[in-house]
Design a protein around this nucleic acid. Structure first.
Lengths: 190, 190
DNA sequence: GTCTATACTCTGATAGAC
DNA sequence: GTCTATCAGAGTATAGAC
């Protein structure tokens, strides 16, 4: 699984052969099939183990009792730190979603990952209390994850066009930890 | 090409077989290979024809003489209208980038698509004149395209979680035509 | 559980007849 | 240009030794 995870993230699921995975893992192809039956099954197992724990951690922030501004800052910081440690994850998930949307939508890890319900309720109650402007909470949630995630999806392009090294890209992303909450909170207060 | 384009967008390049394309196009597999040699070549041709004209149109907005606020609004409107007409395009491009980053980076259509240079210079000169706040222009550009593009990349999830019909998703996206410029301009003026 | 060996089917690509 | 026939390689599956 460790070998397959690395290869799936790097090259994409369909660019990796099962014989290559088995060879680099130092095991026999038949043994791999003994445990996972199919490549698709291996993919699902890996996807779940890659996403699940991260999704749970992120979800716990949005469902905490923190004030709304702090919630946005914590979520952004945590998400970005997580992705700096695994920058290929966004491409992997978006590509997987494109590959087989029906399969992904029903997966527990994905359900946990896209979960705006409690956060949206929090936004509504704040608006009811007159502490923030009344805007569609789902729009704010989508905007937040867009600002956090999309730069990783096009990391290769950003680095290429700006001549960024790996470190410079990371610095660029770190800057966003303050820019993103500023934009979102600005919208809530405008 | 028309048949292949439709299938590539719907199912993803690697989920479509060349025999399926040829069959649905009503031609022989060998004839397809006679013109395109390889599937990869067919993919490149299609990618270019899908992206190039749209990229040129978008670029012309950023390189126009419009004032900065109007530029942001026009760019957002045009981009969103374009994607409403072809919502699978973002997933397709991001997946393609993940599939073979080196190949994509050097393609003309991609160079035209991610092009922030003139826009960034405009932002800098506005900041020099004291008309907007001085922030990293690349950050604003990336934020802008993130807010516009990412919702399309996860369209399937958004529709699933919110029980959106195709029309409701479109209405949700239309709303963003005002939200996105507001966030960006808010950041420039804060 | 782990391995070798093998085979079946589907895919991308090609050679060669017309 | 258009076709048939065929190729090597992929994913999958099985039988059987240890």
């Amino acid at each position: 699984m460790k070998t397959a995870t690395k290869l799936f993230l790097q090259k994409g699921v369909d660019q990796v052969g099962v014989r290559e995975i088995a060879a680099k893992a130092g095991i026999n192809l038949s043994l791999m099939n003994y445990y996972f039956q199919t490549k698709e099954n291996l993919f699902e197992t890996i996807f779940d183990s890659l996403v699940m724990d991260k999704a749970v951690k992120l979800r716990s922030i949005l469902e905490s009792d923190l004030p709304i501004e702090k919630k946005i800052r914590d979520y952004t910081n945590t998400y970005i730190d997580m992705l700096i440690g695994n920058p290929l994850l966004v491409s992997f998930v978006v590509s997987s979603l494109h590959r087989s949307p029906e399969q992904l939508k029903s997966m527990n890890a994905v359900v946990a990952l896209y979960n705006s319900e409690v956060f949206c309720k929090h936004l509504i109650s704040e608006a009811d209390a007159g502490r923030i402007r009344r805007i569609d909470p789902e729009q704010l949630y989508i905007s937040m994850i867009s600002l956090i995630l999309f730069p990783f999806a096009i990391k290769e392009l950003i680095c290429d066009r700006n001549q960024f090294s790996k470190e410079e890209f990371q610095a660029f992303i770190e800057e966003r930890k303050s820019i993103i909450p500023e934009m979102l909170i600005g919208l809530l207060k405008a």
